[in-house]
């Protein structure tokens, strides 16, 4: 019963204003389409600049380049949507990549799917540990995953002991995965696309998926609505870990040679991809399609810079500028919407 929060005052006695009632504005994936448009424009422009950009090999490289980052971005989006963050994904991916390779090296006869499942399992375990720490001990995700960023990476280094595992220690069948194509799309990229679509479908069509948005939107209200917030958050972290594990497996398959530094420093690029794709750090907003498109955009920029005769060293600055414009744009749109809908502008 506070009198400060309710926007009241002179009552308009005229005809009803269109405060959100008259014209319904359904949620459309405008944000995702914007990123898609940017990707298309960038690809088209680069192609005009140099048709070699879209040669068979060029497309292949583009696909493969985006694979790992988009899988990671999808996982990160799951966590960000619940208003958490996972900074340990780079380390988890590195651990899985090395773990998968080490398994092949240690047990030469091991079936390929089993080793891959093990790699994903390592990631899932790491994610589960993050989630449990966040949900049960109530430690902020930023702190927990900053800690596990070091711990997982350190564990990986300790395991690898400075060594690396080379392609010849891994079965041909596994390494060939990187070269196989499905309908002209490299298999890893196809896997990534399947992951994006499946996760997107899950988030949109399952109760538990929608509940992730509810939690990020207002955790207190979610609890009042009977949503088991803790369990969902743990699940989101575990899924993110599993996807980071998958990214590690894909990384190993593609490069063939891994040491324990795989994915070093990757966490921030992953968060960047998700944010550029419209997933809000403040939770509750965004789709995995957007996150994946953000990853594609970042990789495409990397690939396009040399063609535009721009020094590759501009890459990171461009990424930074892109993140800032993305959050600035989101903020601007939010403010404009708030103003258009009237009210809600109280307080700071």
């Amino acid at each position: 019963m506070t009198s400060t929060t309710a926007p009241t005052g002179p009552r308009p006695e005229g005809p009803p204003s269109d405060k959100g009632t008259g014209r319904a504005r359904p949620q459309r994936p405008v944000r995702e389409l914007g990123v898609l448009l940017a990707v298309v424009l960038l690809v088209a422009g680069t192609w005009i600049q140099n048709p070699g950009f879209l040669s068979q090999q060029g497309v292949r490289d583009l696909f493969l380049g985006a694979t790992v980052l988009s899988v990671l971005a999808v996982g990160q989006a799951l966590v960000l949507i619940t208003k958490n963050v996972d900074l340990s994904v780079g380390s988890v991916m590195g651990l899985s990549a090395f773990g998968t390779a080490a398994l092949f090296a240690a047990l030469p006869g091991i079936p390929v799917p089993l080793a891959m499942a093990a790699g994903i399992g390592i990631g899932a375990l790491c994610g589960l540990a993050n989630g449990l720490l966040v949900a049960t001990v109530q430690v902020p995700a930023l702190v927990v995953t900053l800690g596990t960023l070091y711990a997982y990476r350190g564990f990986g280094h300790w395991w690898a002991d400075g060594g690396q595992i080379n392609a010849h220690q891994m079965p041909e069948a596994f390494l060939a995965l990187g070269g196989v194509s499905v309908l002209g799309v490299p298999l890893p990229a196809a896997v990534a696309a399947a992951v994006v679509v499946a996760t997107g479908f899950y988030l949109a069509r399952y109760r538990s998926g929608r509940e992730l948005y509810a939690i990020g939107s207002d955790a207190h209200a979610a609890r009042l609505s009977g949503i088991s917030v803790g369990r969902r958050v743990v699940a989101a972290f575990a899924a993110n870990g599993a996807l980071a594990g998958l990214a590690g497996v894909l990384f190993t398959a593609r490069y063939g040679t891994v040491d324990s530094t795989a994915g070093f420093g990757m966490e921030l690029e992953v968060v960047a991809a998700a944010v550029v794709g419209g997933v809000a750090i403040a939770g509750g907003v965004g789709t995995v399609y957007g996150a994946a498109l953000g990853a594609v955009l970042l990789t495409t920029i990397t690939a396009a810079l040399p063609i535009w005769q721009i020094d590759q060293f501009w890459h990171q600055a461009v990424v930074g500028a892109l993140i800032l414009s993305a959050i600035g744009l989101d903020r601007l749109l939010a403010l404009r919407n708030a103003r258009k809908l009237g009210g809600g502008t109280h307080g700071p």
């Binding site: 968060v271 750090i281 501009w314 461009v318 990424v319 930074g320 993140i323 959050i327």
Partner: peptide
């Protein structure tokens, strides 16, 4: 009024990028 976490992740990339430039 942007969240400092997001802003400084952005400028972290931007400033590092400018160093590379």
């Amino acid at each position: 009024g942007l969240p400092s976490l997001a802003v400084t992740i952005g400028t972290m990339a931007l400033y590092r990028g400018l160093a590379y430039v």
